[in-house]
């Protein structure tokens, strides 16, 4: 049972000091979680702290590769609207 940081991480450092297990470390191209240390905050906090402060949707996933913060959940931008905006920008 461990969380994972994936490539959309922007290296903002917010998660690192919050981890009760010191499982998060700086790495290139992005921060990583030591799977052996990660407890998903069980016993320490109700919510996994890294995913609770992370500002980037999809940057932290569970063992099933599911994002803890799915698209639209943090920005409030509906995914369909986001996709439409991207299409409009590239059509310019």
């Amino acid at each position: 049972m461990a969380l994972e940081i994936v490539e959309s991480c922007v290296n903002c450092w917010a998660c690192l000091p919050l981890c009760p297990s010191q499982a998060i470390y700086e790495a290139k191209p992005h921060f990583l979680i030591d799977a052996d240390r990660c407890t998903e905050c069980a016993g320490d906090y109700a919510d996994p702290q890294c995913a609770t402060i992370c500002p980037i949707e999809g940057a932290i996933v569970n063992e099933l590769n599911e994002p803890l913060n799915p698209p639209g959940s943090l920005t409030g931008i509906p995914p369909a609207r986001w996709a439409q905006a991207q299409r409009e920008i590239s059509a310019r």
């Binding site: 450092w13 917010a14 402060i53």
Partner: peptide
């Protein structure tokens, strides 16, 4: 200071 503790609708952390 890279970390933030809030999200504002005029900001994009990426």
């Amino acid at each position: 200071a890279p970390a933030c503790n809030i999200q504002c609708h005029y900001c994009n952390r990426k």
